[in-house]
Amino acid sequence: MKKIDFLMAGVGGQGTILASNILAEVGLELGYDVKKAEVHGMAQRGGTVESHVRWGEKVYAPMAELGDVDYLIGFEMLEAGRWPAWLRKDAVVVVNRYRIPPPTVNLGKAKYPKEEEIDSLLKNAASKVLWVNGTDAAKEVGNPATIGVVLLGALSTLLGGDENVWLSVVERMVPPKFLEMNKNAFYAGRKLA
């Protein structure tokens, strides 16, 4: 069983935690040893959030190492751009084409990087960078808050394998009244990759 390290990067409030919970449970379903690390607290107040999910035969630390992440899932463009040093040469990156300017940008103290700049940062480090209009797809299924499940849908296509494993975990972890919307979000995401 080959190890797979995932890193999810986003902004507090975007739903990275639910998405990483689902991803961790999918790993367990597939028979991996799984660990997951994230930091709550201050980060919830609109700060940078990162979540590590590790699948492997035997996993010790809950967080991945520099230069060893297999999949980076960026919920927001700038946040995706922070992690090139963490990627393996053969890493795959999924970036949601969505901007949340940090306060320094709005105060004119810093510039929000251009899409090409982020793209080249990531392309220099990884083997494949996939840009998706995930937030648009999430809005279309009814709620931009489903972005996490949209991105998991895209990731499931990239990883291959049985989509029903993912759907059964989503079913378990999402409140029944939002299930239909989240399933739609997952399918919409699958088509993005």
């Binding site: 902004v11 507090g12 409030g13 201050m42 980060a43 919830q44 107040r45 609109g46 700060g47 940078t48 520099l66 230069g67 060893d68 700038l78 946040e79 751009g81 922070r82 992690w83 090139p84 040093a85 940090p102 306060p103 320094t104 940008v105 103290k109 810093a110 510039k111 929000y112 990087p113 940062l121 220099n124 480090a125």
Partner: peptide
């Protein structure tokens, strides 16, 4: 060493130049 340190340092430096995102009031 397992990762080439220069390579890691170069991409860390590029990422460090990105604007930071401290927590703010909702």
């Amino acid at each position: 060493a397992s990762v080439a340190p220069e390579a890691a340092a170069a991409s860390s430096a590029a990422a460090a130049a990105l604007p930071i995102r401290p927590p703010i009031l909702c």
